[in-house]
Nucleic acid binder design. Structure first.
Length: 271
DNA sequence: ATAAGGACCTGCTAGC
DNA sequence: TGCTAGCAGGTCCTTA
C-alpha cells in the first residue's frame, strides 16, 4: 500500500536489476492488469525490448524502453515488485512477470488486483493519468499552496490526498504532515493562516524526504520482505496510533474519518 | 466546480 | 475453533 516514499524505494532498490535488461518473455496472469491493450498485444510489444531507465513520478513508475516506447505502472493498494530467479516458486496473485534474458524475473504481485500497467508506443500520449499530477512534494511552493489549498473549503487532509494538487501523498503521510505542521487535518483549506501554509509547505517536502531516507534498504532486506520492507514503520508519529499518547504532549490521539479515510491527529498540538 | 458514496478486490483481524 | 463484520497505506466513477 505504497505512497511516494515506498514507490521511490521500489525504484531505487530494483533499478540495478532492471535497467539494462532485455525482456525475453512476458507472462500475464490477470488480463485486466494491462489497462490499455489486449494482453496478447502487450506481450508482443514488450518481448525482446531492452529497458534503459526506471523512473518515478508521484506514485507512478515508468520503464523506459530502448525503442522509445515506455511502460507506466501503478501499484495502487497492494501491488509489489520483486526480482527473483526464474526457478523460485511463483507466489499467489503474481499477476504479471517480465522474464529477462539473464534468467531473472521482475514479478508484479498484487492480491487485490487494483494495480495497472500501460504500454505506450514511442511518442504516444501517456493516458495513465501521470501527466495530470501536481508537483512533486519536494517542488511544492507557497504559491502552489496559496492557489490550491487556501482557495478551497474542503478539509486539508482531502486536499493533500488529491494527486492533481500535489503528487505522491497518501493516507499515512497526509496525517504525518498535518501533525508536523501543527494543523488539524479537518481544517478547511481556506482557514489556514499564511504562517500555517508556510509550515505545511516545509513539512510536505521534509516528511516525504525523510521517509524516503528511512525506507532505503539493501536489496537483500527488500527481497526478504518481498518488497514490503517499509511496513510497520517505527518513525510514524500519528498514523495507526489513535488512542495512544501523543509523542509531543502525551494526550491521547484522536482517531476519526475524513473523506472516508481513517485519520489520526492530536487535538492539542494541532489547531 | 465540489462532496459524498459506491465500486473495484482479497486478506487480515477483532469480536462474538 | 469458527464465523463474520469491518477495515486496509489508492483511485475512478456516478450522483446530487
Amino acid at each position: 500500500m505504497p505512497e511516494l516514499p515506498e514507490v521511490e524505494t521500489v525504484r531505487t532498490v530494483l533499478s540495478p536489476f532492471v535497467v539494462g535488461q532485455t525482456i525475453a518473455k512476458v507472462t500475464i496472469n490477470l488480463p485486466k492488469v494491462v489497462a490499455n491493450l489486449q494482453p496478447a498485444t502487450f506481450v508482443q510489444k514488450m518481448t525482446e525490448q531492452n529497458i534503459i531507465n526506471f523512473t518515478r513520478r508521484g506514485k507512478f513508475l515508468t520503464l523506459h524502453l530502448q525503442s522509445g516506447a515506455f511502460v507506466v505502472l501503478h501499484l495502487r493498494m497492494t501491488g509489489t515488485l520483486t526480482v527473483e530467479d526464474a526457478d523460485v516458486p511463483i507466489e499467489k496473485h503474481t499477476n504479471l512477470i517480465l522474464t529477462f534474458q539473464n534468467g531473472k524475473e521482475l514479478r508484479f504481485v498484487d492480491s487485490r488486483g487494483f494495480g495497472r500497467w500501460w504500454y505506450f508506443a514511442p511518442g504516444q500520449t501517456d493516458t495513465s493519468g501521470q501527466n495530470l499530477l501536481g508537483p512533486e512534494p519536494s517542488a511544492v511552493t507557497i504559491k502552489d499552496l496559496q492557489r490550491k489549498i487556501a482557495t478551497r473549503k474542503t478539509a486539508l487532509k482531502t486536499l493533500l490526498l488529491d494527486q492533481h494538487l500535489i503528487a505522491g501523498i497518501g493516507n499515512i503521510y497526509a496525517d504525518e504532515i498535518c501533525f508536523r505542521a501543527g494543523v488539524r487535518p479537518t481544517r478547511p483549506g481556506n482557514s489556514l493562516t499564511s504562517a500555517e501554509l508556510k509550515r505545511l509547505c516545509t513539512e510536505i517536502s521534509a516528511v516525504i524526504n525523510e521517509f524516503i531516507q528511512f525506507h532505503h534498504v539493501p536489496f537483500a532486506v527488500y527481497a526478504q520482505s518481498k518488497g514490503t520492507s517499509y511496513q510497520n514503520d517505527t518513525n510514524l508519529r500519528v498514523y495507526g496510533r489513535a488512542g495512544q499518547p501523543c509523542l509531543k504532549c502525551g494526550r491521547p490521539l484522536i482517531g476519526t474519518r475524513i473523506g472516508q479515510r481513517s485519520s489520526v491527529y492530536c487535538e492539542y498540538c494541532q489547531r
